Every structure is written in C-alpha cells, then in structure tokens.
Amino acid sequence: MKKIILFASGNGTNVENIIKYFQNSGQGTVSAVFVNNPNAKVITRAKDNNVDVVLFDKQQLTEGSVLEKINKITPDLIVLAGFLWMFPSAIIKQYPNKVINIHPALLPKYGGKGMYGKFVHEAVLNNKETETGITIHYVNEHYDEGEFIFQKAVNIEDCTTPEEIAQKVHLLEHEFFPEVISEILNSKA
C-alpha cells in the first residue's frame, strides 16, 4: 500500500478530504499528518479519521528531526495541503519528485512568499481577473516555482468578494487534489 504524508498549518478541509478519499479508494493510505500549528483544526480532523499527527516547530523542521520522522514512515509521496512554511531543501533532496503542493491560483500568477489563502483571492479580485483556479506542482527550494503537474481554471466573473472566490477554488481543490495525488502514486508504481 502506497504511503502518503500530509503537511498542514490550518483548518484542514483538504487534509480531511484526502484522508477520506484514500480510506475509501484503497489506493493508498495517509500515514501521518505533520502540523506546525498546535492550535490548527487539522489536528482534530486527522485524529477524528484515525490518522497520526506529528506536531513540530520551526527548529525541528530545519534541524532535521522532522526528516528523521519522515524517514521512519518512508512515504511514497509528501503532500503539502495548506502548509505555509518554506519546505526544507534537505527533505526535497531526499525525496526528489515526491513532494507536491497545491496553490489556490493559476501559477505563475499570484504565487510566492505571502501569497496564500485570502491574500491570493484578494489580489485576484483587486486585479479584476475573470478566472482563477488551482495549481498542483512539485516543490522546490522556492515558493510556488516547482514544475506544474495540474491546473484547473474556474470563471469568477460573478464573484464580488474574496470569500466567493475562495469558495469556488475550494470546490476545485476538493474535486481534483485527491485524484491528482492518486494519479501520481499510480505513475510511481
């Protein structure tokens, strides 16, 4: 059975969606959710779905103890699902083409440091874009610059608030993120 590790920082709706997808599909299993925020709702979501949670801080991430914990699991794929910190190059080097991220916009637009969640949707709205979407990409040493795996656009001409845009983007994330993860796992068979 293919093993997936998820990294998250916040609410965790994508994490919960991915966990349930793989619990029902039998195509892989979420072995653990690594969380850098002790108050994140994702912790409850993971535990409610019987998935182990690994809580860590910045020092543990950069000095190697998180990598040691990852190595004990030996994942087939590491998925950043709402993880807001720069991912360490040591982990990326040890797991080449096995670390992916989802971004709530059509990269290369609206990417980079500080461009996450509502900040992305506010920028999209302020620039009067007619569409936005999601980008799933490999992670490298720079924010949102890894090779694209998948993009899906949605029309937002009827949206008047960042929250309305977020709702449409979230629907795309929930529909396509687990499927793309599954396709990547199957291609690495």
Rank of each mutant, 00 (worst) to 15 (best):
M1K: 14
K2C: 02
K2Q: 10
I4A: 00
L6M: 13
F7P: 09
A8T: 09
Q23F: 11
N24A: 07
S25T: 13
Q27W: 06
G28A: 15
T29K: 15
T29P: 07
V30K: 00
F34K: 04
F34Q: 00
V35E: 03
N36G: 11
P38K: 15
A40K: 10
V42W: 02
A46M: 06
D48P: 07
N49Y: 08
N50E: 08
N50Y: 08
V51S: 09
V53A: 06
V54L: 03
V54K: 13
L55K: 14
L55E: 14
F56G: 12
Q59H: 13
Q60A: 15
Q60M: 14
L61H: 12
K72M: 05
T74R: 03
D76S: 15
G82M: 06
F83A: 02
L84Y: 06
M86P: 01
I91V: 15
Q94N: 15
Y95W: 08
Y95H: 04
K98H: 12
V99S: 13
N101C: 03
H103N: 07
H103S: 03
P104S: 14
L107K: 06
P108N: 02
K109I: 05
G111C: 02
G111D: 04
G112V: 03
K113M: 08
F119C: 00
L125W: 10
N127M: 05
K128F: 08
T130D: 05
T130I: 09
T130V: 10
E131K: 09
T132L: 08
I136W: 06
H137R: 04
H137V: 06
H142Y: 13
E145S: 12
I149W: 08
I149K: 09
F150W: 07
F150P: 08
V154K: 15
D158Q: 13
T160E: 11
E163M: 00
A166L: 01
V169E: 06
V169R: 11
E173Y: 09
H174M: 13
E175C: 11
P178W: 07
E179H: 14
V180E: 06
S182R: 14
E183N: 15
K188T: 12
K188E: 05
